[in-house]
Simulated assay, not measured.
Amino acid sequence: MTGSAFAGSSGVLDVPAPAWIVNDATFFPQWGTFLLALIKHGSIETVRCPEGLVLGDNEFGLLIEGGLFVIDGQNRPDARLMLIEFLKRGDLLTSSPGHSSLLQLYPHSRTTCLVVRDRTFEPFKADFPNWDQLLFQLKAGIAEAYEQATVETRGRDQDRIRRVLTLMADHPTSVDSKLGRQIEAGKQLIRDLAGVQKRSATRAFRALEEDGEVSFHGYKRLFFKG
C-alpha cells in the first residue's frame, strides 16, 4: 500500500502530534518525517471491546481514532487495577514503560491505531533513525504518568472513582451537555478502572450523586460535573 493512498483513505496525516512532542524543539520538526515513516511501515488495526491491544518489545503505534485505557494490573500487591492514562487521537502507544511490568491497553470503544509490528520495525528505523531517542522520551513520559497515578490512587475509594471520571470527562470521547460532561461508561467499568470493590463503589457512587457531581442515565451513560 502506498503512503499517499494510505493517508488519503485514513486521514493519518491529519493526526496531531502529542503535546510533549509539540513542546520539544528537537522532535517537533521531525514529526512529519516520523509520520511518513510510520505510514510507510505501519498497518491499520482496529480494536473493539473487550479485546486489548498487545504490543511486543519492538512494536508501537499511533492512536488515530477512539481511546485506549493504559492499565497496570500485574504484580500489584493489592490486586487492584490502576488506570495510568486515557490515550486519545495523536498519542503514541507502547506497552513497555521501562519498568518490570508491561502495561495493558484496552479500548473505551471502537478504536483505530496505526501500528508498527516487529516484522517492519527495522525498515522503519532505517527511515527514522532517531526512533531510539524518541522512544526514550516516550517511556520517560509514561514513567512520569505512572508515578503520578500511583500517588493519586492512594486516597479513598471515592477519590479513586472521581479520578477515573475526571480522566474520562477530559477525553474527546466525552461531550459537553447541560447536565455536565456526558460519558459513555457504566458503573462496572468505572469501578474496575478505579480498582474499587463493588460494595465500596456503590457507597462512593451514592455519595457523588448526593453531592451533585455525577448523575447516571441508563446502563452506560452518565453526566459528570466534577
Results as ranks from 00 to 15, higher is better:
residue 20 W to E: 08
residue 20 W to P: 02
residue 20 W to D: 04
residue 22 V to Q: 15
residue 22 V to M: 14
residue 22 V to R: 15
residue 23 N to K: 14
residue 23 N to T: 12
residue 24 D to L: 05
residue 24 D to E: 06
residue 24 D to T: 07
residue 24 D to G: 05
residue 24 D to C: 07
residue 25 A to I: 11
residue 25 A to F: 07
residue 25 A to R: 12
residue 26 T to Y: 14
residue 26 T to L: 13
residue 26 T to K: 12
residue 27 F to V: 11
residue 27 F to I: 11
residue 28 F to V: 13
residue 28 F to Y: 15
residue 28 F to I: 13
residue 30 Q to S: 09
residue 30 Q to Y: 09
residue 31 W to A: 03
residue 32 G to V: 06
residue 32 G to Q: 14
residue 32 G to D: 14
residue 32 G to H: 13
residue 32 G to F: 01
residue 33 T to N: 12
residue 33 T to G: 13
residue 34 F to D: 03
residue 34 F to P: 08
residue 35 L to K: 11
residue 35 L to M: 12
residue 36 L to Y: 06
residue 36 L to V: 10
residue 36 L to I: 10
residue 37 A to H: 05
residue 37 A to R: 03
residue 37 A to P: 07
residue 37 A to Q: 08
residue 37 A to D: 09
residue 37 A to L: 06
residue 38 L to T: 00
residue 39 I to Y: 01
residue 39 I to A: 00
residue 39 I to K: 01
residue 39 I to Q: 01
residue 40 K to N: 08
residue 40 K to T: 10
residue 42 G to H: 01
residue 42 G to Q: 04
residue 42 G to R: 01
residue 43 S to V: 10
residue 43 S to I: 02
residue 43 S to A: 11
residue 43 S to K: 09
residue 44 I to R: 07
residue 44 I to D: 07
residue 44 I to V: 11
residue 46 T to V: 15
residue 46 T to P: 01
residue 47 V to E: 05
residue 47 V to Q: 07
residue 48 R to T: 15
residue 48 R to A: 14
residue 48 R to C: 12
residue 49 C to R: 12
residue 50 P to T: 08
residue 52 G to H: 08
residue 53 L to N: 04
residue 53 L to F: 06
residue 54 V to Q: 07
residue 54 V to N: 06
residue 55 L to F: 02
residue 55 L to T: 05
residue 56 G to V: 07
residue 56 G to A: 14
residue 56 G to E: 15
residue 57 D to I: 10
residue 58 N to K: 13
residue 58 N to L: 11
residue 59 E to A: 05
residue 60 F to A: 08
residue 60 F to N: 08
residue 60 F to E: 09
residue 61 G to C: 04
residue 61 G to M: 01
residue 61 G to H: 03
residue 62 L to W: 02
residue 63 L to D: 10
residue 64 I to V: 08
residue 64 I to P: 00
residue 64 I to D: 01
residue 64 I to E: 08
residue 65 E to G: 04
residue 65 E to F: 04
residue 65 E to P: 01
residue 65 E to M: 07
residue 66 G to K: 08
residue 66 G to M: 09
residue 67 G to L: 03
residue 67 G to Y: 02
residue 67 G to P: 00
residue 69 F to I: 00
residue 69 F to D: 02
residue 70 V to N: 04
residue 71 I to M: 08
residue 71 I to E: 07
residue 71 I to G: 02
residue 72 D to Y: 00
residue 72 D to A: 09
residue 72 D to P: 00
